[in-house]
Protein backbone atom coordinates (compact mmCIF):
# COMPACT_ATOMS: atom_id res chain seq x y z
CA UNK A 1 0.00 0.00 0.00
CA UNK A 2 1.38 3.37 -0.99
CA UNK A 3 1.28 5.80 1.90
CA UNK A 4 0.05 9.30 1.21
CA UNK A 5 2.77 11.93 1.23
CA UNK A 6 1.21 14.37 3.68
CA UNK A 7 4.41 16.38 3.97
CA UNK A 8 4.65 17.20 0.27
CA UNK A 9 0.91 17.93 0.12
CA UNK A 10 1.10 20.29 3.07
CA UNK A 11 4.07 22.17 1.70
CA UNK A 12 2.62 22.71 -1.74
CA UNK A 13 -0.69 23.73 -0.20
CA UNK A 14 1.04 26.36 1.97
CA UNK A 15 2.92 27.60 -1.06
CA UNK A 16 -0.29 28.03 -3.04
CA UNK A 17 -2.02 29.86 -0.21
CA UNK A 18 1.14 31.80 0.70
CA UNK A 19 0.59 30.56 4.25
CA UNK A 20 3.26 30.20 6.91
CA UNK A 21 4.10 26.79 8.31
CA UNK A 22 3.93 26.04 12.02
CA UNK A 23 5.87 23.03 13.20
CA UNK A 24 5.64 21.70 16.73
CA UNK A 25 8.14 19.44 18.45
CA UNK A 26 7.04 16.88 21.02
CA UNK A 27 9.16 14.37 22.88
CA UNK A 28 7.76 10.90 22.28
CA UNK A 29 6.48 9.51 25.55
CA UNK A 30 6.73 12.68 27.61
CA UNK A 31 4.92 12.84 29.94
CA UNK A 32 3.50 9.51 28.61
CA UNK A 33 2.66 7.80 25.33
CA UNK A 34 -1.11 8.44 25.66
CA UNK A 35 -0.33 12.11 26.40
CA UNK A 36 1.75 12.35 23.22
CA UNK A 37 -1.14 10.85 21.25
CA UNK A 38 -3.64 13.28 22.73
CA UNK A 39 -1.34 16.23 22.08
CA UNK A 40 -0.85 15.27 18.45
CA UNK A 41 -4.59 15.20 17.79
CA UNK A 42 -5.17 18.50 19.56
CA UNK A 43 -2.22 20.03 17.71
CA UNK A 44 -3.79 19.02 14.41
CA UNK A 45 -7.06 20.63 15.46
CA UNK A 46 -5.17 23.79 16.47
CA UNK A 47 -3.84 24.08 12.94
CA UNK A 48 -0.31 22.83 13.46
CA UNK A 49 1.07 22.10 10.01
CA UNK A 50 3.90 19.67 10.77
CA UNK A 51 4.70 17.58 13.80
CA UNK A 52 8.30 16.90 14.69
CA UNK A 53 8.31 13.82 16.87
CA UNK A 54 11.42 13.72 19.04
CA UNK A 55 12.77 10.28 19.88
CA UNK A 56 14.51 10.26 23.25
CA UNK A 57 18.23 9.53 23.38
CA UNK A 58 20.53 9.17 26.37
CA UNK A 59 23.02 11.73 25.04
CA UNK A 60 21.18 14.52 23.18
CA UNK A 61 24.14 16.80 22.55
CA UNK A 62 22.33 19.40 20.42
CA UNK A 63 19.64 19.88 23.05
CA UNK A 64 19.36 22.20 26.01
CA UNK A 65 18.13 21.34 29.52
CA UNK A 66 14.40 21.25 28.67
CA UNK A 67 14.58 18.57 26.00
CA UNK A 68 17.27 16.70 27.95
CA UNK A 69 14.76 16.58 30.80
CA UNK A 70 11.85 15.32 28.71
CA UNK A 71 14.10 12.74 27.03
CA UNK A 72 15.32 11.43 30.38
CA UNK A 73 11.75 11.16 31.63
CA UNK A 74 10.66 9.27 28.53
CA UNK A 75 13.66 6.94 28.74
CA UNK A 76 12.82 6.13 32.34
CA UNK A 77 9.60 4.68 30.90
CA UNK A 78 11.62 2.68 28.37
CA UNK A 79 10.16 4.50 25.39
CA UNK A 80 11.82 3.29 22.19
CA UNK A 81 11.62 3.51 18.40
CA UNK A 82 9.03 0.73 18.18
CA UNK A 83 6.68 2.80 20.37
CA UNK A 84 7.08 5.70 17.96
CA UNK A 85 6.31 3.58 14.92
CA UNK A 86 3.28 2.04 16.62
CA UNK A 87 1.98 5.45 17.68
CA UNK A 88 2.24 6.98 14.21
CA UNK A 89 0.60 3.93 12.58
CA UNK A 90 -2.24 4.30 15.07
CA UNK A 91 -2.61 8.02 14.34
CA UNK A 92 -2.85 7.31 10.63
CA UNK A 93 -5.41 4.57 11.23
CA UNK A 94 -7.47 7.05 13.24
CA UNK A 95 -7.38 9.54 10.37
CA UNK A 96 -4.63 11.96 11.42
CA UNK A 97 -3.45 13.79 8.29
CA UNK A 98 -0.79 15.98 9.85
CA UNK A 99 2.67 15.28 8.40
CA UNK A 100 4.98 13.73 10.99
CA UNK A 101 8.73 14.15 10.84
CA UNK A 102 11.12 11.99 12.86
CA UNK A 103 13.59 13.92 15.02
CA UNK A 104 16.29 11.84 16.65
CA UNK A 105 19.98 11.17 17.07
CA UNK A 106 21.68 8.67 14.84
CA UNK A 107 22.71 5.99 17.31
CA UNK A 108 19.25 4.54 18.01
CA UNK A 109 18.67 4.53 14.21
CA UNK A 110 21.98 2.78 13.66
CA UNK A 111 21.16 0.28 16.40
CA UNK A 112 17.73 -0.44 14.87
CA UNK A 113 19.45 -1.11 11.58
CA UNK A 114 19.55 1.89 9.26
CA UNK A 115 17.88 0.14 6.29
CA UNK A 116 15.14 -1.44 8.39
CA UNK A 117 14.59 1.89 10.05
CA UNK A 118 13.98 3.67 6.73
CA UNK A 119 11.53 0.97 5.65
CA UNK A 120 9.62 0.85 8.93
CA UNK A 121 9.50 4.62 9.41
CA UNK A 122 7.95 5.08 6.00
CA UNK A 123 5.52 2.24 6.59
CA UNK A 124 4.43 3.73 9.92
CA UNK A 125 3.62 7.02 8.20
CA UNK A 126 6.61 9.29 8.76
CA UNK A 127 7.18 11.83 6.01
CA UNK A 128 10.68 12.93 6.79
CA UNK A 129 13.69 12.79 9.06
CA UNK A 130 15.72 15.30 11.01
CA UNK A 131 18.88 13.77 12.45
CA UNK A 132 20.92 16.57 13.99
CA UNK A 133 24.13 14.57 14.31
CA UNK A 134 24.08 13.12 10.81
CA UNK A 135 25.48 15.52 8.20
CA UNK A 136 24.99 14.58 4.53
CA UNK A 137 28.62 13.43 4.27
CA UNK A 138 28.05 10.38 6.47
CA UNK A 139 26.19 7.08 6.00
CA UNK A 140 25.67 7.07 2.23
CA UNK A 141 23.90 3.70 2.24
CA UNK A 142 21.33 4.99 4.72
CA UNK A 143 20.81 8.25 2.80
CA UNK A 144 20.27 6.25 -0.38
CA UNK A 145 17.73 4.03 1.35
CA UNK A 146 15.84 7.10 2.59
CA UNK A 147 15.71 8.47 -0.97
CA UNK A 148 14.47 5.13 -2.25
CA UNK A 149 11.72 5.07 0.37
CA UNK A 150 10.84 8.73 -0.29
CA UNK A 151 11.56 9.55 3.33
CA UNK A 152 12.57 13.23 3.15
CA UNK A 153 15.93 14.11 4.67
CA UNK A 154 15.56 17.57 6.13
CA UNK A 155 18.92 19.31 6.44
CA UNK A 156 19.84 21.88 9.04
CA UNK A 157 21.63 25.11 8.21
CA UNK A 158 23.33 27.04 11.02
CA UNK A 159 24.46 30.64 11.46
CA UNK A 160 28.05 29.38 11.16
CA UNK A 161 27.42 27.55 7.87
CA UNK A 162 29.41 29.01 4.96
CA UNK A 163 27.51 30.19 1.87
CA UNK A 164 29.02 27.44 -0.22
CA UNK A 165 27.95 24.76 2.21
CA UNK A 166 24.52 26.33 2.69
CA UNK A 167 23.95 26.03 -1.07
CA UNK A 168 24.83 22.34 -0.91
CA UNK A 169 22.59 21.77 2.11
CA UNK A 170 19.50 23.53 0.74
CA UNK A 171 19.94 21.68 -2.52
CA UNK A 172 20.07 18.33 -0.73
CA UNK A 173 17.38 19.09 1.80
CA UNK A 174 13.99 17.63 0.97
CA UNK A 175 10.60 18.95 2.01
CA UNK A 176 11.84 22.02 3.84
CA UNK A 177 15.07 23.52 5.17
CA UNK A 178 15.60 23.83 8.92
CA UNK A 179 17.42 27.01 9.84
CA UNK A 180 19.02 26.88 13.29
CA UNK A 181 18.29 30.41 14.45
CA UNK A 182 21.10 30.69 16.97
CA UNK A 183 24.52 29.44 18.01
CA UNK A 184 23.84 26.99 20.77
CA UNK A 185 21.53 24.24 21.86
CA UNK A 186 17.74 24.08 21.79
CA UNK A 187 15.84 25.97 24.45
CA UNK A 188 13.86 29.15 25.02
CA UNK A 189 15.73 32.46 24.72
CA UNK A 190 14.59 35.95 25.66
CA UNK A 191 16.13 37.55 22.58
CA UNK A 192 17.03 36.12 19.23
CA UNK A 193 20.22 37.02 17.39
CA UNK A 194 20.32 40.26 15.41
CA UNK A 195 21.72 38.61 12.28
CA UNK A 196 18.73 36.25 11.99
CA UNK A 197 16.87 38.35 9.43
CA UNK A 198 19.84 38.69 7.10
CA UNK A 199 20.67 34.98 7.30
CA UNK A 200 17.08 33.97 6.56
CA UNK A 201 16.83 36.37 3.64
CA UNK A 202 20.02 34.99 2.14
CA UNK A 203 18.89 31.42 2.57
CA UNK A 204 15.47 32.06 1.02
CA UNK A 205 17.16 33.54 -2.04
CA UNK A 206 19.02 30.26 -2.49
CA UNK A 207 15.99 27.99 -2.68
CA UNK A 208 12.31 27.66 -3.44
CA UNK A 209 11.93 25.14 -0.63
CA UNK A 210 10.35 26.57 2.51
CA UNK A 211 12.84 27.68 5.15
CA UNK A 212 11.65 27.12 8.71
CA UNK A 213 13.46 28.67 11.65
CA UNK A 214 13.83 26.85 14.94
CA UNK A 215 15.79 26.97 18.25
CA UNK A 216 14.96 29.48 20.94
CA UNK A 217 11.46 30.56 19.83
CA UNK A 218 9.23 30.75 22.89
CA UNK A 219 6.57 33.47 22.61
CA UNK A 220 3.75 34.25 20.15
CA UNK A 221 5.43 37.57 19.36
CA UNK A 222 8.75 35.91 18.50
CA UNK A 223 6.87 33.33 16.43
CA UNK A 224 5.02 36.03 14.50
CA UNK A 225 8.14 38.16 14.01
CA UNK A 226 10.19 35.27 12.70
CA UNK A 227 7.37 33.99 10.52
CA UNK A 228 7.57 37.30 8.68
CA UNK A 229 11.24 36.63 7.89
CA UNK A 230 10.89 32.90 7.17
CA UNK A 231 8.41 30.44 5.71
CA UNK A 232 7.51 29.24 9.15
CA UNK A 233 8.78 28.36 12.59
CA UNK A 234 9.56 25.29 14.66
CA UNK A 235 8.81 25.39 18.38
CA UNK A 236 10.03 22.71 20.75
CA UNK A 237 11.47 23.50 24.18
CA UNK A 238 8.81 26.13 24.91
CA UNK A 239 6.09 23.51 24.29
CA UNK A 240 7.84 21.09 26.64
CA UNK A 241 8.13 23.85 29.28
CA UNK A 242 4.35 24.35 29.14
CA UNK A 243 3.86 20.60 29.16
CA UNK A 244 5.65 20.42 32.50
CA UNK A 245 2.66 22.33 33.88
CA UNK A 246 0.16 19.95 32.34
CA UNK A 247 -1.34 18.92 29.02
CA UNK A 248 -4.03 21.67 28.91
CA UNK A 249 -1.37 24.38 29.40
CA UNK A 250 0.61 22.99 26.49
CA UNK A 251 -2.51 22.76 24.32
CA UNK A 252 -3.42 26.38 25.00
CA UNK A 253 0.15 27.46 24.22
CA UNK A 254 0.22 25.52 20.93
CA UNK A 255 -3.07 27.12 19.89
CA UNK A 256 -1.81 30.63 20.67
CA UNK A 257 1.42 30.04 18.80
CA UNK A 258 -0.47 28.61 15.83
CA UNK A 259 -2.67 31.68 15.67
CA UNK A 260 0.38 33.94 15.88
CA UNK A 261 2.11 32.16 12.98
CA UNK A 262 -0.97 31.87 10.79
CA UNK A 263 -1.97 35.46 11.47
CA UNK A 264 1.13 36.64 9.58
Amino acid sequence: MATIDFLTQKISQAKRKKAKLFCVFLTLGYPSLPATERLIFSAERSGVDILELGFPFSDPLADGPTIQFSSEKALQKNVNIHDGFRLVSKLRAKGCKMPVVFFGYFNPVCSYGAKDFARDAKKAGFGGLIIPDLPPEEEQAFQKECRKRKLRRIELVAPTTSDKRAKMLVQRSQGFVYYVSLRGVTGARKALPSDLKAHLAKLRRMTKKPVLAGFGISTPKQAADISRMADGVIVGSAVIEHLKRGIPAAERFIKKMSQAVHGV
Binding site: F106, P135, E137, E138, E155, L156, A158, T160, T161
Partner: peptide, 21 residues
Protein backbone atom coordinates in the same frame (compact mmCIF):
# COMPACT_ATOMS: atom_id res chain seq x y z
CA UNK B 1 40.15 12.99 4.05
CA UNK B 2 36.80 12.84 5.87
CA UNK B 3 38.24 11.32 9.01
CA UNK B 4 37.23 7.70 8.47
CA UNK B 5 39.20 4.74 9.75
CA UNK B 6 37.45 2.11 7.64
CA UNK B 7 33.83 2.20 8.83
CA UNK B 8 34.72 4.17 11.98
CA UNK B 9 35.40 7.78 12.88
CA UNK B 10 33.89 10.47 10.67
CA UNK B 11 32.09 13.58 11.76
CA UNK B 12 28.66 13.03 13.29
CA UNK B 13 28.05 16.54 14.54
CA UNK B 14 25.43 19.28 14.59
CA UNK B 15 25.72 21.64 11.62
CA UNK B 16 26.76 24.55 13.88
CA UNK B 17 30.08 22.77 14.57
CA UNK B 18 30.96 21.85 11.00
CA UNK B 19 32.76 25.12 10.34
CA UNK B 20 34.80 24.87 13.55
CA UNK B 21 35.83 21.28 12.78
Amino acid sequence: AKGHFGPYGGRYIPETLVKAC
